[in-house]
Nucleic acid binder design. Structure first.
Length: 652
DNA sequence: AGCACGCCGACT
DNA sequence: GTCGGCGTGCTC
């Protein structure tokens, strides 16, 4: 017997191996097998079985699963994801099981016959060492033993899926966090009462995740389980409960979307616009896209909640593919804006702003200031030789950190001392721009009398716990200065919120800049629930108080622009990156790609190639596909050495 | 992806 | 003469 195996490598092809007679009954599609590959051992998934003898093939080294652990629905979803994201099936299937996966440790044997009495109660692992793996598996096949997992105690068997039910319905709920919580809890409870499981996707585990976990646990208690790779044992428990149990609420982030779940009845997604749903390593996917497809394929409802949904979802709503409910976000919020002179970035905080903050501090208010960057300044520029400060190793622009008076390279993490002179010409007229939280803190310290400032960044939250921050932040008279992380702290409430630095997004976020600013600002208001919001903007800024308040109008306008420019969600973008050490080898591959694209009639849908010097040499080509399908040429490109393909890149 | 192999230019 | 970087091809 021969099995065809999909390996977790960026290769589209499968590899065939011979299966010795004794293992034949277990070599079924989707079982995991250990195989020799070159000079290493890899674990892959059986994707096909054919009759035949050892025709010079290598033998499989081991079979890991007594029966396949992945059900049909999960497999179909992986298969769909692979064609949509141009990934090999072996990589996708790997994501469907817990990262550090040890079944034998958590499964135990229950004897069902006199001859197997001696194995009763042993873990599967112990039973293997005692009686041999082959013997135990034969007992299982002869129904002389059964298996149960140590968490639920219930019998371990192939996954029973609900099959396709006619209940697909995608619903986008645009409302503030209090209303979303009510709505989530209502639909979740309804589904759990029917004895079905619910999958609840959250963008992270430590802020938004933790908040919703505490909320749902209040009313659902032990029905709530977490699926997270940072706690392997807990992840294993959830894995078993998801397949055996009934009526569990499974919380998880992006990788939970591929978890095999029995009797899944509903999917909920909190804040589908968050970037954390994008998987960047090995196999690129967006968990929200997969969640919608999963609900559609299995015929179940999906509820997506946010105050600032991603544009593609709003587009689907306009087409009638998703139903949309909107609620007012600003009934208790006063919005205003402060227009400042443009072109003077990074010199001084506007005087009006300083006096506004000063007044708030005098009145003992809680106040939060948002700025997109955490450091002091992200760009340094020598006014004498007119050159930016670049990393001597990799030529990436250096950032400046006040703490320690250091220059740092964001790309290679090199750290350099800063001596207030230009490394190129020795000049001392240095301009700082793209300033961040450290800078704002310094400016306020200079302008106000002993201000109480708390700087909050993603990193500082990860080091301490969020709760200890909140205690300080809640103290009246405190000025909280923070980056995007502030939009995740639902437990922090402020009287006044100041939104600065949106110009920075025009530089880094490309075509999504306005969408991102809109989402971050609205999510900050959603999380912090301020009574007053002040948008600091210059003449180039697109998001003012009016845009923030008029959500429907903003989306309409932004979608019109995207349609006009032929950008997502009306087309799909594919970023093709060629990385080589020498110019000649790179140009050869790039020329081959360009030629092939032109031959396929895609020349006019191609942008680039553009050459970038970052360490080695990097060429980038962007291809516009149509809304849903993937141009077939791309699968040819996949697997060329030094060529990377990124579907739906966040910026280009 | 990871690895072996073969090609070149550089250097004690 | 040989060491090391780089490109190419292969893995059942």
């Amino acid at each position: 017997m021969i099995v065809h195996v999909a390996l977790p490598l960026p290769l589209q092809k499968t590899f065939s191996y011979y299966v010795p007679f004794i293992w034949e009954p277990f070599a079924k599609p989707l079982a995991r097998v250990k195989v020799p590959f070159g000079n290493r051992m890899l674990t892959g998934f059986v994707v096909g079985v054919t009759e035949g003898g050892d025709e010079g093939l290598k033998e499989i080294a081991d079979i890991l699963d007594i029966f396949p652990l992945i059900g049909e629905a999960t497999f179909q979803l992986c298969a769909w994801a692979c064609q949509y994201y141009l990934a090999p099936i072996g990589l996708a299937l790997k994501y469907a099981l817990p990262s550090r996966f040890k079944v034998e440790k958590y499964l135990s044997v229950r004897a069902k016959a006199e001859q197997t009495r001696h194995l009763d109660g042993l873990t599967l692992k112990a039973a293997y060492t005692f009686a041999g793996k082959q013997t135990v598996w034969e007992y299982y096949r002869a129904e002389m033993v059964e298996l149960y997992d140590s968490f639920t105690g219930s019998s371990f068997a192939p996954l029973e899926e609900s099959g396709i039910t006619p209940g697909y319905q995608a619903r986008l709920y645009v409302a503030n966090v209090e209303r979303r919580k009510e709505e989530y809890l209502r639909v979740i409870s309804e589904t759990l009462e029917q004895g079905k499981n619910v999958l609840f996707l959250l963008p992270d585990s430590h802020t938004v995740g933790d908040y919703f976990c505490r909320f749902v646990t209040q009313s659902l208690g032990k029905r709530v389980v977490w699926y997270t790779s940072s706690q392997p044992k807990r992840q294993m428990e959830t894995f078993f409960r998801a397949r055996a149990g009934e009526g569990y609420l499974i919380l998880g982030n992006k990788s939970a979307v591929l978890l095999p779940v029995g009797q899944l009845g509903l999917i909920v997604v909190e804040r589908p616009e968050e970037d954390e749903y994008r998987n960047e390593e090995a196999f690129h996917f967006n968990a929200v896209r997969l969640a919608i497809k999963s609900a559609e394929m299995q015929g179940m409802p999906i509820l997506l909640g946010s105050v600032s949904p991603p544009l593609d979802l709003v587009n689907l709503a306009q087409q009638g593919a998703v139903s949309l409910t909107r609620e007012e976000l600003f009934s208790q919020t006063k919005l205003s804006e402060l227009r400042v002179e443009s072109g003077k970035r990074g010199h001084q905080l506007p005087a009006e702003l300083v006096s506004c903050i000063d007044q708030a501090v005098q009145e003992n208010e809680t106040i939060a200031i948002y700025t997109p960057r955490r450091d002091y300044a992200s760009h340094l520029y020598c006014l004498e030789c007119k050159k930016p400060f670049l990393c001597p190793d990799c030529e990436t622009p250096l950032t400046y950190h006040r703490e320690g008076d250091k220059l740092a390279c964001p790309s290679c993490r090199k750290s350099l001392a800063y001596d207030e002179t230009c490394a190129q010409c020795g000049g001392s007229l240095i301009q700082f721009s793209a300033t961040g939280a450290e800078y704002v803190e310094e400016q306020l310290s200079a302008a106000l009398q002993e201000p109480r400032v708390l700087r909050v960044t993603g990193e500082s939250i990860r080091k301490k716990d969020a709760h200890s921050f909140l205690q300080v932040a809640q103290t009246p008279g405190t000025i909280v200065i923070g980056t995007q992380i502030l939009s995740r702290l639902y437990d922090l409430r402020v009287k006044r919120l100041i939104l600065m630095g949106q110009e920075e997004f025009l530089r880094v976020a490309g075509y999504r800049a306005h969408e991102r600013v809109f989402q971050i600002f609205r999510n900050l208001i959603d999380a912090l629930r301020p009574e007053e919001v002040l948008v600091v903007a210059d003449k180039t800024s697109l998001i003012g108080a009016a845009q923030l308040a008029n959500e429907e109008g903003f989306y309409e306008e932004e979608l019109a622009k995207r349609r006009q420019a032929e950008f997502p969600p009306y087309v799909r973008l594919f970023l093709i990156e060629v990385e080589k050490k020498t110019r000649a080898s790179g140009q050869r591959v790039v020329a081959e790609i360009v030629e092939r694209l032109q031959a396929e009639g895609l020349g006019s849908r191609m942008m680039g190639p553009m050459l970038q010097k970052r360490g080695g040499l990097r060429w980038r080509i962007v291809l516009r596909g149509d809304e849903s399908s993937v141009p077939p040429v791309l699968s040819w490109m996949y697997g060329l050495s030094g060529v990377r393909m990124e579907p739906d890149p966040p910026s280009i």
